[in-house]
Design a binder for these strands. Structure first.
Length: 463
DNA sequence: GTAGGGTTAG
């Protein structure tokens, strides 16, 4: 073990260290193995190491807790382990509480959250900034910005850059973008993460121009952007269709020798395709070594939006051949491509693939594409079968599509059934009443036309 | 080598 080797070198010069090392000789090596498994994401290995450890100190327990916590965002296993800790009388320190609070936030049980806040205060950890930050994060995850703001205020001078980042993100998520900016401006010791939070916040809340302005302010203050920054900025360029700025950012990435990971690559593809340069998008795609489902989906969607439906579908099959599993979003792209080009057979085939091969539960978007595709082709009975497979609460739009199709293709019998269903949904949407009224007129059902017109008056809309 | 904050597709 190299740990032992290091010790012997150290002890040759400083004999006095030997005794203190001997006392904890099994600890550091076990702990190193535990941490190593954790770093590799091998939770099972971490648990094995932990179970074999002759002496488990609080740090080992915390390490395993953190391992459970970092996986998949589900804090349940961490909470189970915490219970085990309590049963064995291990106790907990402030670090345990930080981990447990984030585990609790992940399982989103508000009642646990309030009780843990009590325990924290009881244990006298309540003015420990990392713990307070963990609690801030918990309130933000619950969407309880009032509690978060109260705590943030109480913290006073203990607030650090992390507290500010948490608050800014919470404000952005709840739509208080100006408050976020205010908190951002008031904090003078800004680090890169804080800048990135504010910039991505602008992009997420659909303020791409503000994101670009802030990015330039950041450059003026000579803060070096990283891959997180440029991904947000590229997304802003995509929103604005600003090809020139997008190219500028691409050059920046190359000249600054920035980390060119799958996020950056995918954001570049998206930017180029939304800014109208599909050739640059595809050139970027083919240059990328690591591609994930996001990368493929972005390229497939980009081609489809350009009207290159055939190329888009070919890329989809290539993706499958390369062993990358498409997801919901990928299927939205390919089904939309089929709809656009009126590819009935291929659309139906892809829909069945989605269900059978990939066991994906089709969503409104998938049904919507297929029903529109079938309806436009006049295959209204097939379309109707798919509407029936949908969740009843989501059928409104589908029935509107179908009823229009029945009108266009003069399928009165089915149209009458669809109209009944549509009426039963009791929508107050003016367009639905107009559609129904027009359909009944076409079907010669004049009493129902009158009924629809009365409805329109009841809902305060002029005919 | 124990904890808290930031990134991509429809």
């Amino acid at each position: 073990m190299d740990g032992v080797g290091v010790v012997s070198i150290v002890t040759a010069e400083e004999g006095s260290v030997v005794n203190s090392w001997m006392v904890v000789s099994d600890g550091p090596l076990w702990r190193r193995d535990l941490a190593h498994s954790r770093w590799c994401g091998l939770i099972g290995d971490a648990r094995n190491v932990f179970d074999k450890m002759p002496h488990r100190d609080l740090a080992s327990w915390n390490s395993l807790l953190a391992a459970y916590n970092s996986r998949s965002g589900d804090g349940t296993e961490a909470l189970v382990l915490f219970k085990e800790m309590m049963c064995e009388g291990i106790g907990a320190d402030s670090i345990t509480f930080v981990i447990i609070i984030s585990a609790i936030a992940a399982v989103t049980k508000v009642e646990y959250g309030s009780s843990i806040h009590g325990s924290v205060i009881k244990n006298g950890f309540d003015c420990y900034v990392n713990l307070e930050n963990a609690m801030l994060g918990m309130y933000v995850k619950y969407g309880d910005m009032n509690a978060a703001l109260t705590l943030f205020t109480e913290m006073g001078d203990r607030r650090d850059v992390v507290s500010h980042t948490i608050m800014i993100n919470g404000c952005i998520e709840t739509g208080f973008i100006e408050l976020a900016r205010d908190i951002f401006d008031r904090w003078f010791d800004k680090d890169l993460v804080l800048w990135n939070s504010m910039i991505s916040g602008y992009v997420e809340s659909n303020h791409p121009n503000e994101a670009l302005v802030l990015f330039e302010k950041m450059e003026n203050e000579e803060i070096e952007p990283d891959q997180y920054t440029v991904v947000s900025i590229l997304s802003a360029c995509a929103c604005l269709s600003d090809l020139q700025y997008g190219r500028h950012v691409h050059r920046l990435i190359l000249t600054k020798n920035m980390l060119h990971d799958v996020f950056v690559g995918t954001a570049l593809i998206d930017m180029y395709s939304k800014c109208g340069s599909i050739s640059d998008a595809m050139a970027t795609f083919y240059k990328m070594e690591d591609k994930d489902v996001f990368t493929w989906t972005t390229a497939i969607g980009g081609l489809a939006n350009f009207g290159y439906v055939k190329a888009s579908l070919e890329l989809f099959y290539q993706m499958e051949n390369e062993g990358v599993n498409p997801n919901e979003a990928t299927f939205v792209c390919v089904l939309a491509a089929c709809r656009q080009a009126g590819l009935v057979e291929e659309g139906c085939f892809l829909f069945s693939t989605l269900v059978r091969n990939y066991k994906i539960q089709p969503k409104v978007e998938h049904f919507g594409c297929l029903i529109d595709l079938l309806s436009r082709a006049g295959l209204v009975h097939q379309a109707d079968e798919f509407v029936k497979a949908m969740d009843p609460g989501e059928r409104l739009v589908a029935y509107k599509t179908l009823l229009s199709a029945c009108m266009n293709h003069s399928k009165i019998d089915l149209g009458l059934k669809v109209a009944d269903e549509l009426k039963r949904l009791g929508s107050e949407d003016h367009a639905v009443h107009v559609l129904l009224s027009n359909f009944y007129a076409l079907a010669g059902e004049w009493s129902k036309v009158e009924e629809m017109r009365r409805n329109m008056k009841i809902f305060g809309q002029s005919v």
